[in-house]
Design a binder for these strands. Structure first.
Lengths: 221, 221
DNA sequence: ACCTGAACACCGTTCAAGT
DNA sequence: ACCTGAACACCGTTCAAGT
């Protein structure tokens, strides 16, 4: 079994590459050229080794990405916590989203499982706690947290893929579609017309979040 | 330029495969084995041709997926529209989500751009309209629609990837994480403990949606 | 006009061998 | 214990040629 790293130092051949070194190189590739460019072969080249050497330090590519996620999540900022439950939820959720926005690939890759990398548990814990402070029962608080996670993950993923498309010079589907919206069939969209694009480019995360939290907290009464 | 299909029939060699045939075969592969198994080479085998023949009928793999999306979206059910704006929003959004839940791969692949395949414009149009009927200004209504889209896309993506993981027999990260939650650091999560898993497996889409819509409509007053 | 074959430039991963 | 080389079984796509 290939164990993570040197169990008993001194035995056998000395390592030429280490897991931290591999992770650092992987992060560099992603930051510079995007997650799509991160391949085992490329990474091997980057650390001056062979693809197979990597498999001595990580089980497979999936584990590599998981490790990168854990590392990133550990470094995310933890906002100050206001006393008011509602404000607390907003602060934590916004912190989570701002943190994740800095590395959208991570959400794309893992598409979630709740971002329950153990380093990110804090966000979930604080949000559940604040909903309970706001009057929700435990179960309702967990569901409320999930709603916020769905909203946040959706926002990040949609934004990230729109960004990717724009970068690739693709005509972002909706631009082509809005050129000929049938006013009879879709009256509202026809009315909005070209305004749709700048409108949806605006950052409305905070507005929607605040509405969602209001709606969720209203269940407490 | 390779034009979509036979422009002037009778000229040149008669086609052996057609775009509809290709799309049908692609759908069959996805339904049977998932989107990951859909490759140009596999598809060629499936229609009894060569990979390159496909490129005469679709520009590239991305276009193929776009065509599949358009086809699927065109067949999605359009729920009846209640008079009350709030009920209308809930009905349309739920219809959208139920339709998409039937083919989660589509959201994964496109990760969105608002699902503005022209066939799916209807959902957006009806939701914006209902928010306006509920008293929101045009801009606010568009933002409200977006909030619902984020929430819905997030729900579908998170669910789909959790399902994929379960199918693959992976230990769904959170199960491993919850084994040793630090009660001092994350008191709420420790308290919830093993309940987290069945709790988050519940379908809480409707609850969250309803809270979100309440919160959004409250902005009208 | 439509299709084929061969090729290019890649992937992730396994296996057997070297030091 | 750690690393290498060669190989397996794939990808999407281009190019030049055939019918």
């Amino acid at each position: 079994m290939p164990q993570p790293t040197s169990e008993r130092r001194g035995a056998g051949r000395p390592p030429r590459i280490s897991r931290p070194e591999i992770l650092a190189a992987a992060r560099a590739v992603i930051d510079a050229e995007g997650v799509a460019k991160l391949t085992m072969r490329r990474l091997a080249r980057e650390v001056g080794s062979t693809p197979m050497a990597l498999y001595h330090h990580v089980r497979d590519k999936e584990e590599l990405l998981l490790l990168l996620l854990a590392e990133y999540a550990a470094g995310m900022p933890r906002p100050a916590l206001p006393d008011d439950p509602r404000e607390r939820i907003l602060a934590v959720a916004t912190g989570m989203r701002d943190g994740l926005a800095g590395c959208p690939w991570i959400v794309e890759v893992l598409a979630a499982d709740d971002l329950l990398a153990s380093e990110a548990l804090w966000y979930g814990d604080r949000i559940v706690d604040a909903f309970m402070a706001g009057g929700l029962a435990t179960e309702a608080a967990v569901h409320a947290y999930r709603a916020i996670w769905y909203y946040t993950a959706g926002e990040i993923i949609v934004r990230a893929s729109a960004g990717r498309r724009a970068e690739a010079g693709r005509p972002t589907y909706r631009e082509t579609v809005f050129a000929d919206v049938d006013a009879a069939e879709y009256p509202r969209l026809a009315e909005i017309g070209a305004d749709w694009i700048p409108l949806t480019a605006q950052d409305a995360y905070a507005d929607g979040l605040s509405a969602l939290v209001d709606g969720l907290l209203a269940r407490a009464a």
